[in-house]
Design a protein around this nucleic acid. Sequence first.
DNA 1: TATGAATGAGGATTCATTCAT
DNA 2: AATGAATGAATCCTCATTCAT
Lengths: 191, 191, 191, 191
Amino acid sequence: MTREEKKIEILKAAAIVFSKNGFYAAKMEDIAKQAGIGKGTVYGYFDSKEALFHELLKYGIEEYKEGMEKVLKGKGSVKEKTIELFKYHGKFLTKYIDIAQIFINQQAVFPKELRKEMLKEKMKLFSMLKEMIEQGKKDGELRDDLDEELVTLSIAGSISQFYGKKVFFDNYSYDEISPEPMVEILFKGYI
Amino acid sequence: MTREEKKIEILKAAAIVFSKNGFYAAKMEDIAKQAGIGKGTVYGYFDSKEALFHELLKYGIEEYKEGMEKVLKGKGSVKEKTIELFKYHGKFLTKYIDIAQIFINQQAVFPKELRKEMLKEKMKLFSMLKEMIEQGKKDGELRDDLDEELVTLSIAGSISQFYGKKVFFDNYSYDEISPEPMVEILFKGYI
Amino acid sequence: MTREEKKIEILKAAAIVFSKNGFYAAKMEDIAKQAGIGKGTVYGYFDSKEALFHELLKYGIEEYKEGMEKVLKGKGSVKEKTIELFKYHGKFLTKYIDIAQIFINQQAVFPKELRKEMLKEKMKLFSMLKEMIEQGKKDGELRDDLDEELVTLSIAGSISQFYGKKVFFDNYSYDEISPEPMVEILFKGYI
Amino acid sequence: MTREEKKIEILKAAAIVFSKNGFYAAKMEDIAKQAGIGKGTVYGYFDSKEALFHELLKYGIEEYKEGMEKVLKGKGSVKEKTIELFKYHGKFLTKYIDIAQIFINQQAVFPKELRKEMLKEKMKLFSMLKEMIEQGKKDGELRDDLDEELVTLSIAGSISQFYGKKVFFDNYSYDEISPEPMVEILFKGYI
DNA sequence: TATGAATGAGGATTCATTCAT
DNA sequence: AATGAATGAATCCTCATTCAT
């Protein structure tokens, strides 16, 4: 196993332990045990508990962004892409459920710096979404009086609440969930 | 000052300190100082740090629920009420910004119990919203093929992302934000 | 007991423990036990183990300097004062045997800063001694071709070796040791 | 390179690192790096960190003793030999400055055993010096009412303080220092 | 023989909680 | 009721040592 692969192994173990109890209650020893290695070994790969957490977040964001980019660069109408984004979110949630939990629940463990860094990354994802909306207006697929930012926020919010409810509350698994009706409502409106 | 008023004072101090540093980094001593009292005194009002945090969350939810009920019991169309809900959310965010931050960022400090309790409370708020949607359909204000749950999730998600972006990222104050265009988009759809 | 008195109590306990095994082997828990208090209490008086050690050294130097000044300001010939200095050194060694051990053996626990600070303090003591020699030359008590610095160094070295041997190797107690013959040799020479 | 030569190489590296940081702050990894070898290799030559330190001290003492014996066995008057001893001390300090620093500063890293062993070795050096004084009395070079031990202690103390000041405080190099005036004062006395 | 990745014992430090005043 | 000095459980991290390669 290469050094990089071992780092990923440790990150996965850390995700499980951090997501269970949060950053502070997670013990380095537990993470090591979860990874099947000794306590000191973790420090051979990460400088500190904070550094480990930081890298875990970066890893999660990078993974998410890559998948999202793939969807947005693909072909299809805005509506089709939106559906794909919903599905991708669900898939990510399932695959990286521990990391996802951390993103949802642990954003504030570090006072300022990291929170700002995370916010900036989130805004990058927003920008990508916004570009899709702009293109949809140009192509005549969407009303041209739409405020792109508002549309972006409504989609992002709906994705988050939709899968949050289905996965964490109703305990559905990814492939039992059809986002099409939700996207339909967003595009058609309530009236 | 009555015992109950003093408890509220301590809760407000706790909200400030918890929101700044998160649950674990917040020290009981800091909370006491923020409240202008001695460390030991806090324990005359709350059994433990966890209990204090727990009561703070309950207090925040209760406040939110009361305001939301008032809006929903008021008169007006579903769209008008939705706009009022948006506005109420912004007002709450401004008044209880510290508690709100905690709800956004600190949901996972306790392993399971409290997280579930919070989720249950959140679902109660959802139910209230859902009833409004059902009534709107009965009254013919909304399309009658709408899935109430999906509408509820899209409204809740949009409220959350809309004010999150405006208040925490763009640093707008409550009265500078008009939710009407956002609600318009939700009701009319994107196409 | 005032705060200052309690600090002295802890310093005394620290001196005992530090002198036994050196800075690193000394455990804060042992120091606390020696002082008859809880581990955490030590931190109410000193910021860290290093700070505690630092203050202990400062305290020891201050005590030594005060006694030395008293001797040098007193009346009597240079020879009489030299004898008094020897005696004072022996008395200090007996009273503060633990701190003295630390000065002899632990000067290098901190890389640079503290070592320099200690060296500076030592040089201050040297200066005081040198002034005495200068006065002795002026008064015609000592040969006027003497290099004051060399005399100072020979006295300081002799004091240190003399009492080091008598107290730490031969295990004599302070009042069993007569420094007069040693001083006589220094003043008369070997030939 | 023979096994013995390699041991010396490691000892020299250890001397540099120990003298810089003290026994506890010195890391085996740093010593290995300084010697240009791998961490594990050190353990092929020394059983433990303590053993390495122990052997380093023994090595230093042995080197010192050999040089001192050479001086004492040579020809010349007691005064000339005393001057040679001073000079030898200065030369040793220059050549083995790192080991010398350890002797000055690190005598107490081990509780009792090693400290006693070192003290015993020091006393052996004292005995050699004392024999020289006794011979000087027999030969009529020194007053015959002199206490040999006191003379020994005053010479040893003066050597130590003299070079300590010149080398470590004034930063003189070995060949810039003339011990003759100091020896002159010791033999002639102050009056 | 040489290496350095892996290990885990050990200790400084923090801070929630207690309790004498 | 209010206080804050005292306590010690709990945990991050270091580094001497081992051992598979």
